[in-house]
């Protein structure tokens, strides 16, 4: 109860600000229409109009809710206008990209921790890779892969992996280096090999760091997939819904797709968080 009240208060405040903003931002169009019809609008009429336009600059919350209902619940999930359908397209590429990114990130981290040369050479490139705007590089990856006959899920997954491997590398390097000098000395007193130290000490020790990274990585993977769906005229996926909405001025469609993407991201992060809790508790490392 003590948490519910503040949370509800914040949500109500946000919705109120949103409604007020909808009035402000859609008023111009309402006044223009009235002027064209040579009438004037009272304040009440203005408010009603700004909250119910077909193509508002900023749709009101209930319009977005209606849009979400129409495209999620009131429609067959297999329809091309269903957000469930588009969400699934995006989710499948996100999960594939997340998988590739996680494996690549762990592999790079293992290399960095065990090889001085890789430590010095790979990390700067990994950091540099994240400073390149993903919007600039995504179309090139799609075009290049398309020209060698690869299209569909894989190019999107690669762009998604491009964003999600980075937090995994950073977290895993820290995690694999988490064992302290005493624990490593202890391994030395047993004359343990590098691989024995890795499997028995470094890898288990890195788990809390890995999961913290995975939560960031899966959200980044979703962003990567949506960005990958924007260029090259993709027709399926949440990114494509966003783009076609903006082409045709369908702001309600854009906002619905945005909310669907946000809900998807939140759900994915929560699922990773639950797996984290279960694994760390089993390993006796939960805080």
């Amino acid at each position: 109860m003590t948490k519910v009240v503040p949370v509800l208060t914040v949500i109500v405040a946000l919705v109120l600000i949103w409604y007020a903003a909808a009035v402000g931002m859609n008023a111009q169009w309402a006044r223009d229409q009235a002027a064209r019809a040579e009438t004037t609008l009272g304040f009440g009429e203005l408010v009603v109009d700004t909250w119910s336009q077909d193509r508002p600059v900023l749709p009101a919350p209930h319009q977005v809710a209606q849009g979400l209902y129409d495209s999620v619940l009131a429609i067959k999930p297999t329809s091309k206008r269903s957000l469930v359908y588009h969400g699934w397209i995006t989710l499948s590429a996100t999960l594939a990209g997340f998988g590739i990114g996680t494996l690549a990130g762990i592999a790079l981290a293992v290399g960095i921790v065990h090889s001085r040369a890789m430590d010095m050479s790979v990390m700067p490139w990994a950091i540099a890779s994240q400073t390149i705007p993903i919007l600039a590089i995504a179309p090139m990856i799609i075009v290049v892969l398309n020209s060698i006959g690869i299209s569909g899920l894989l190019p999107k997954a690669i762009i998604s992996a491009y964003l999600s491997f980075f937090p995994v590398v950073v977290g895993m390097v820290k995690g694999l280096r988490a064992p302290d000098a005493m624990q490593l000395d202890q391994m030395r007193t047993w004359s343990a090999t590098n691989s024995q130290t890795f499997w028995r000490l470094r890898l288990p020790s890195s788990m809390p760091y890995l999961f913290a990274s995975l939560k960031v990585a899966i959200a980044a993977a979703l962003v990567g997939t949506i960005v990958a769906e924007l260029p090259a005229g993709a027709t399926r996926g949440l990114g494509a819904r966003l783009l076609s909405g903006s082409y045709y001025g369908q702001t309600v469609q854009i906002w619905s797709a945005l909310f669907a993407a946000a809900a998807l991201a939140a759900a994915l992060v929560v699922i990773v968080g639950l797996i984290e809790r279960g694994v760390l508790k089993r390993m006796g490392m939960a805080q």
Partner: peptide, 30 residues
Amino acid sequence: ARSYGYVFQAAGLYPWRTIAGNIKLPLEIM
């Protein structure tokens, strides 16, 4: 040649292993 066992100031037991599992650790390695 495994001539000595070394005990550090901290017990340094692995939280993800049972006590028996921890004692087995050097035995597995060897």
